[in-house]
Write a protein that binds this DNA or RNA. Structure first.
Lengths: 160, 160
DNA sequence: TTTTCAAATGATAATGACTATCATCTAGGG
DNA sequence: CCCTAGATGATAGTCATTATCATTTGAAAA
């Protein structure tokens, strides 16, 4: 984790930015919630919880900066809020998501899986791909299991 | 086109909704701009241009309704505005997009291309896929060609 | 035909995420 | 120690979208 912060600091200074206390606090919150998909508001509250003083505007600015540096990806699941997702270190593409339309949970997929599709796109459309966004909407395993259980209970009630 | 409107009318009445003049005007605008990616505001202005009287709120409500019926897909290219994209009739999935990061153009891809990826996801994550969103960000053919031309001109200037 | 009533509409107020502004602060170079 | 550019924070402003509510519409019932 420390080394990760160090490397982000280097990325910042490489572009002429400094790792201020506010930026560091923001980065740490993101690292501590690696698998979540925090909104700017979420990050703001989490930073303040850790007694670090910060303004909402700074959080927005920092997240924008980190997006520019490709440390995070700004993603959008259609709920009207931008969320920020840490990239795998060194990853050239943002990773994929499985969004459950029932419980709202979001699962991450780290494998690429799109190599073949990208080759096809490049060849067919002469489009030079820089990044991609892939999201599946559907029913997660937990909700499927709940359905199965409910169907079973329903059947039992009927038979009594 | 007329038959398409008819079929949408049937879809509406199937769920207890009516095809009001405002809804019909909205649908017609969408059909006439099939390959564009109109925002609610765009649709609103286009409907008014055709002398049909309509309120902005009704446009939003109609687009929401059409999204529910899966006649259109609500898509988001990160510019802070939702855009509405007609589905291919009978298509079970929304189609993909190539968004140019230089000129902002959006190209559509109607082929699915994700069959294999979806099989893998279903098997590995036990996730029941209902729909997907796939967007590639990169440089379109036109912008690539412009770059090549500019590089050439630059080289010629140098050699003079 | 007239009545009735739920659905639909339109004007507009409200919301909420995000951005711009600007006075203040900070840290490193001179 | 001073100076200056970059950074910050409070807050006002913007803009897409949603909620509210009075009014209208249209189809079924009387």
């Amino acid at each position: 984790m420390e080394s990760r912060v160090e490397r982000i600091k280097k990325q910042l200074s490489g572009k002429g930015y400094k790792l201020t206390p506010q930026r560091e606090a923001t980065v740490r919150v993101l690292l501590e919630h690696e698998s979540d998909h925090l909104s700017a508001e979420n990050v703001f509250l989490l930073v303040k919880e850790k007694n670090s003083d910060i303004g909402l505007a700074t959080v927005y600015r920092t997240l924008e900066l980190l997006t520019e540096l490709e440390v995070v990806d700004k993603v959008n699941f259609g709920d009207g809020v931008s969320r920020f997702d840490l990239r795998q270190e060194g990853a050239s593409h943002s990773h994929h998501h499985l969004v459950c339309i029932e419980c709202g949970s979001v699962e991450e997929i780290l494998e690429d899986m799109l190599e073949d599709v990208e080759k096809e796109i490049t060849a067919k459309f002469k489009f030079k791909i820089k990044d991609h966004r892939l999201t599946f909407h559907g029913v997660c395993r937990v909700c499927q299991e709940r359905h199965a259980r409910e169907a079973l209970e329903e059947a039992q009630t009927q038979s009594v």
